[in-house]
Nucleic acid binder design. Structure first.
Lengths: 223, 223
DNA sequence: TATAAATGGTTCACTATTGGATCAGGTAGC
DNA sequence: GCTACCTGATCCAATAGTGAACCATTTATA
């Protein structure tokens, strides 16, 4: 068993909170109890709980205790926590709404340098030989398109999606669905997107992106 | 068995990272552990990890450890923090992408009870006399439409937008833009959305919502 | 009401862990 | 032999965890 450090304890606590523990009165056990339960010093628990406090999962009161805020469905922290549990199918549906739009914006707004960055990512992805490298530059290709959409909010939503896609359920899925043939398909579809972007054809970029995402969805979800 | 050199170890590590290892807390084992696991000297591991660091797969901190840059649990919070700074114009642009889709989904998927809840919110909003009450039920109307879209990710994105819209710059803006005339406009536009939902007309719902959002954008941003 | 217990907040000295850096050797391939 | 690489070892610097004590506030109890 790996040694527990503050960060691990913070993660363990978050998990237990998200599983509904301590929900009946919204109160966490005293730090001293948690310390003995995890078998670490109270200082360590304090740092872990401090992390939860920092991201708004919890509030502390001297003499009273530590209380969950996650019970409040309107908190940022609770919203993000719930997002981590959304299904790949739901996310793919939203990607198909947002990414074609991002491609369309990019076709209109991108600078020549930004488009060049997109082309670079595409080139490296196509040339890559192993799955991790391809994964990375594939993601980078999509990211750079969002980056030239000139809409900060859209960029951040994509960031959220990217983070979620790097977590558990997605990983298994991507691993299963990867094959040399699919990689080639993705490359040619990316090429069509890129061509439309370079031609400043926003409708074409949008359509090409949608086609690509439908392929991805089919591969990932097996439909 | 060929002898392991730093490059081999870098490749092995990358592979294990790409397969999702160490993803739960984003932390790699200490170099000394990796060295004994691979059966090589720590210097060799150091060079391998150095390669991962060079291509950005990993960051190292003296005394703390080596951490994956993807799946970094902090970046979620950072992303949300950046979102708080996005401009109303950018968010309105994205609302015009997502809300018509949500309305369309709702027209298809909502249960009779859910549609009733939407109607209730609409009715109270129309009947309300003061700005805070109207604001609340107006938001609730939109929220309940998302609630019957049957896409959890979409719902949570809307939640994020709602939280952001209740913060500073938006509040001032909404206060400035409020007028009795506009309230009446919103009510009649909501009515059109509601009618389409009740008629299970997904295209109509989408179009009515888009029209409404364009009105809101004009009023808020003064265009 | 007065007192005690519970609980989070703070600090301190000490130890353990971990990445950073360097050096003198050994080994394999050209 | 030359070169490139790995080995084994040592020391350094930064960070984290330990255990303990004491404080401030709140809550329960006599």
């Amino acid at each position: 068993m790996p040694k527990l450090v503050a960060n691990d304890i913070a993660i363990a606590l978050k998990k237990r909170i998200s599983l509904g523990e301590w929900l009946e009165n919204g109160r966490m056990p005293p730090e001293r109890d948690l310390a003995s339960e995890f078998g670490v010093a109270r200082n360590t628990v304090r740092r872990a709980v401090g992390m939860l406090e920092d991201d708004g999962t919890v509030v502390r009161h001297v003499g009273r205790g530590t209380f969950l805020t996650a019970g409040n469905p309107d908190s940022m922290a609770a919203t993000v926590a719930r997002m981590e549990g959304t299904s790949p199918a739901d996310m793919m549906e939203i990607r198909q709404l947002l990414e074609p739009a991002a491609a369309s914006f990019a076709a209109t707004n991108a600078s020549a340098g930004e488009l060049n960055a997109v082309r670079e990512a595409h080139k490296i992805a196509c040339a890559s030989q192993d799955m991790p490298t391809f994964e990375h530059w594939d993601a980078e290709f999509h990211h750079r398109i969002f980056a030239c959409s000139r809409n900060d909010f859209l960029k951040e939503i994509h960031n959220l999606m990217r983070i979620l896609r790097n977590q558990r359920p997605w990983f298994e899925m991507k691993k299963r669905s990867f094959s040399e043939e699919r990689r080639a398909t993705y490359c040619s579809e990316h090429q069509l997107v890129l061509d439309a972007l370079l031609a400043r054809d926003s409708e074409g970029a949008s359509a090409a992106m949608l086609t690509h995402l439908r392929t991805v969805e089919r591969n990932l979800l097996g439909r």
